[in-house]
Nucleic acid binder design. Structure first.
Lengths: 189, 189
DNA sequence: GTAGATTGCCTAAAACTTTTAGGCAATCTG
DNA sequence: CAGATTGCCTAAAAGTTTTAGGCAATCTAC
């Protein structure tokens, strides 16, 4: 029997591509086996189970996204950096909806520790250096930025904005303006 | 054979309760049949299929949440109203995590039209009356508030904040402060 | 009150997903 | 090239989804 050459990495990558095509929910061990024209049980030598596969796709997405963000933010500061950060997230979600959905998977403590999660929060924190916030507020601001970007992207991609008038691109730009203004005049406790 | 008295409403309600207990992902036609001690096929007289069941749970959640928000916001204005709105969302998500997760289900056009989605955006818009924003910006602000609340709740419930220091309650309060400040000094185009 | 219509719940069955166990042969290592 | 490794297989059990068709419990009308 000719070997196809399965590895965990190839499975995860194929799973990520499948997620972008048909949605993260539809990524199943069976669907992946079908793609490689291989029996389902064969995949269980490479991933522990269905959950393991999904977790690995999520970790891939988080790492890819962290790389893109790092690249986008490099050499920028202030509002420029803020916009680069937001746009990197938004563009990734648009180009890789399945992978982005994967990054929202609830990770257990172990997977979370091994994830690029910390890189993400540290990059956001780096951007705040341009805004001069006292320490306790920095963490609040990191969380606020995360909330806005994540929430905006979720709603936009979920069609939450698609039934009302002004186009979303303008709202996105005004959102970046608003965040910049807010960070420059952050209200004191 | 004694009849259990299944109806679509009872199934949807039981599905919502099950979602709160074990997670929206785990709500399945089979699990529900088990709860009613009834054969799986029996449920298919009341719901079209698994997707239909989930959609109905989502619509229930959206409607319940709209009622709670309407109640919370009534008679308030300004920051008071803003906080009531945000707290209503956050409290609902904490008390009914499965239902809240259901509200994030991507709805098709038909279900979206029949949903309480419009009530939600209109209540947010009503709050903005206390902040005196020109029209195009009102829509942007509605979307921003939706993004922040939704994003914050998703991240908080997904454990996204749980690995860093200051507790989330304080961040939440500072987030409401920040949004209030932002709306009062909304940057001009 | 009973005849007839409705419908709630059933059995049966097909198709699919997940997962484990154990085996053969293709490949890598020395 | 012998032996160890491992990639992919068959087999099988357990669970979910969905459709089709049937019986009997309930509701409606005379």
């Amino acid at each position: 029997m000719a070997r196809v050459g399965l590895t965990t990495e190839r499975l995860v990558l194929a799973g990520a591509e499948l997620a972008d095509e048909v949605g993260f929910e539809q990524v199943t061990v069976s669907a992946l086996a079908r793609q490689f024209d291989v029996k389902v049980a064969s995949l269980y030598s490479h991933v522990k189970n269905s959950q393991d596969l999904k977790t690995r796709i999520a970790l891939l997405g988080l790492a890819e996204l962290a790389d893109l963000v790092a690249d986008a933010v490099a050499g920028r500061s202030g509002k420029d950096a803020l916009a680069a950060l937001g746009n990197a997230y938004r563009d990734y979600a648009r180009e890789h909806p399945g992978r982005y959905a994967a990054t929202q998977l609830r990770l257990d403590a172990e997977a979370a520790a091994a994830s690029a999660g910390r890189r993400h929060s540290q990059m956001t924190r780096a951007i705040l250096r341009g805004y001069d916030l006292p320490e306790p507020d920095q963490t609040h601001a990191v969380r606020l930025l995360g909330s806005v970007f994540h929430g905006y992207i979720s709603l936009e991609m979920g069609g939450g904005f698609s039934h009302s008038a002004p186009d979303t691109q303008e709202t996105w730009e005004r959102t970046l303006d608003a965040l910049d203004a807010l960070l420059r005049k952050w209200p004191a406790s």
